[in-house]
């Protein structure tokens, strides 16, 4: 077992087989730097719980393929990304820090799917971005490809 500590000082025990899906922790273990507790100063306990849930489910990808549990895993993934926008972004940050390739891809794709049809205003609000373009600059971008700003699919809601 490997002990992980979140930035709000909570400790979690994870099986080594599960935790080495993180390239970063795998390297630490291989280098002998993971003797006691591994502190994760960038990850809070709420996010770490999600990440560990994912790691435990994906503990052995090869085994899943053999026993025909692939569909099960797919369903889990779909359920897993069903979380709030901020939560999702926190998991992406954690996956990036821990270097868990599959989790990173899953969450980035989910984030992209959510943004895909959003209006510019909705994106700014969701990601808390301040518009620093002048009105003229904005108009120029619109004029270059007006069709990109039109269409029944464009969604102005924030969720």
């Amino acid at each position: 077992m490997v002990k992980l500590k979140s930035n709000d000082d909570k400790e979690f025990e994870v099986e080594e087989a599960a935790v080495i899906q993180s390239e970063m922790i795998k390297n630490m273990i291989e280098d002998g730097c993971a003797t006691s507790v591994i502190p994760l100063p960038n990850i809070d306990s709420k996010t770490l719980i999600k990440v560990i849930e994912y790691l435990n489910k994906h503990i052995n990808m090869g085994k899943a393929a053999e026993t025909g549990e692939e569909d099960d895993l797919k369903e889990f993934d779909e359920q897993f990304v069903n979380m709030g926008w901020e939560e999702l972004f926190d998991v992406i940050m954690a996956a990036n820090y821990l270097n868990i390739h599959e989790l990173m891809e899953l969450c980035c794709q989910s984030a992209a799917d959510r943004l895909k049809n959003k209006s510019v205003r909705a994106v700014r609000e969701m990601l808390k971005i301040t518009n620093d373009l002048t009105e003229e600059e904005e108009q120029e971008i619109i004029n270059d490809a007006p069709w990109a700003f039109e269409g029944p699919e464009i969604d102005d809601t924030v969720n």
Partner: peptide
């Protein structure tokens, strides 16, 4: 990285974000 998963139409629109 998230942007690189988006289709072209969304990207052209999102040039207006900032």
């Amino acid at each position: 990285i998230i942007l690189s998963n988006l289709p072209v139409k969304s990207l052209l629109r999102f040039k207006c974000v900032s």
